[in-house]
Design a protein around this nucleic acid. Sequence first.
RNA 1: GGCGCCGUGGCGGAGCGGCUACGCAGCGGAUUGCAAAUCCGUGUACUCCGGUUCGAAUCCGGACGGCGCCUCCA
Length: 482
Amino acid sequence: MALQLHSTLTRRKLPFAPLADGKVGMYLCGPTVYSDCHIGHLMGPVLFDAVARWFAVRGFQVRFVNNITDIDDKIIDKANATGEPWQAITERYTNQYLELLKKLHVTTITDHPRCTEYVPQMVSYIEDLVARGRAYVAGDGVYYDVSRQVGYGKLSGRRLDEMTADAGKLDRMAGAAGGVRHPADFALWKLAKPGEPSWPSPWGDGRPGWHIECSVMSLHTLGATFDIHAGGEELKFPHHENEIAQGEAHGGDYARHWMHNNLVQYQGAKVSKSDPRMSDPAFALQFQAKAVVAAHGPAVVRFLLLNGHYRRPVDFSPENIGAVATALGRLHRVVAADLEKTSDLSLEAILAILLPDEASRHRADFVAAMDDDFNTGAAIAELFGLAHLLGKLPADQQPAVRTVVWGLGRLIGLFQPGDAAAVPAAADDDRLAKVMSLVLELRASARANRDFAASDRIRDRLKAAGIVVKDGKDGATWEFAP
RNA sequence: GGCGCCGUGGCGGAGCGGCUACGCAGCGGAUUGCAAAUCCGUGUACUCCGGUUCGAAUCCGGACGGCGCCUCCA
């Protein structure tokens, strides 16, 4: 079956046809780096990393661009509030973001352009829009003229004539000396107030507007027309709509396919910054990317995100994360032997492995699920199908199945080196490890003497202390209670 | 109010007209000195009302409900 994907523009699934044979150009809107990464920031990278991996599996050479917005009003506000230079703020949070992507094994992104590296290109792009009569100078900057745009609103299904009653926009129109002409017109260039970071331009020192950066950076990395533009649902309007307007006005068809991932939820609903529960730091920490990754491990976070479909919301409530972590543990046991390998298997190599019929069907269904709009959730279900089969197969057929589970998982970013050890479980205190070793030794001799009363007493008391003892074939092990 | 997405078993979550999704939890079994862990087995489902069809969770219409965007939120 041909690879097909759902485009927001057409609202339907269509076979994927690349602009250039054997190549895919993807652009994913990245974070504005003014504070700690939110778990939502991880969604796009992880989800579209799986997409990019699958394109590569299907033989495409992928250029995957993910920008960093390192100049923005929020950054300036933060600098003003803390007194810290804005460059220091953006550098810190850029590093945090890139560090998280690394931990999550998001490896397919080829370019991380920074907004501040493209300001001259943005200026000339805006000059071009002005020259074409698609933008105009107002009192506080340069604005895009949406009234000249044919088909404005086609991505989000909005109509220009219905967007006139926006109070905030009207205020801004009144505030801009020289006047903004239409409420939907948006800033391409913002003139700097005293003390604000700024770059030179024909209209005066200032900084680029939000939407212009993506249009310019995609142009310079992927071209005026490119295959796929991705991002979160919430960016459809106004951000993506305005990118299209700019891109088309500048010349080119802009993105041919638009892919939007759904958003993070918590017990079925979005938790906004103004949610009263957010005043509890422990609650708020559940949404901070680095805290979530530290608490559950990158493997669980990645698995949670890929466990459904990218166009559906993902629930980050603790109950859900716990259930998913247990499920992933089961797969980890299946692939334990290969988990630490640093090189992947190609799809061809995986398909060449001889399997029993039923296992072979699961393998084929995995591939079909990924070909069908990157349905990672359905694909992972096939992995469980294979894992389940393992218990029924003779021992000599099991290694092949294990290798296939691992190989297929790797193709979408699962089962990376370090995944199994990612959640700190036991002995990070050497002294405790030594004491436990002694305790288990004593208990082992009690058991050898069939003194189960003493043996159970040790186990019970340890359990009360938060330490769980498990008796296995090769002696007892221990870990902290979950 | 406008635009969009969605309503599946206790929970999470696939499904794109006929065929067990899957996972977690629960229950039963194997294993164990007893446990834990592990493995095997297993049930309950498609918000409601119309319609199309031989046949609908799946298509169409309506009702009700949830979510998101419309404020430079990923």
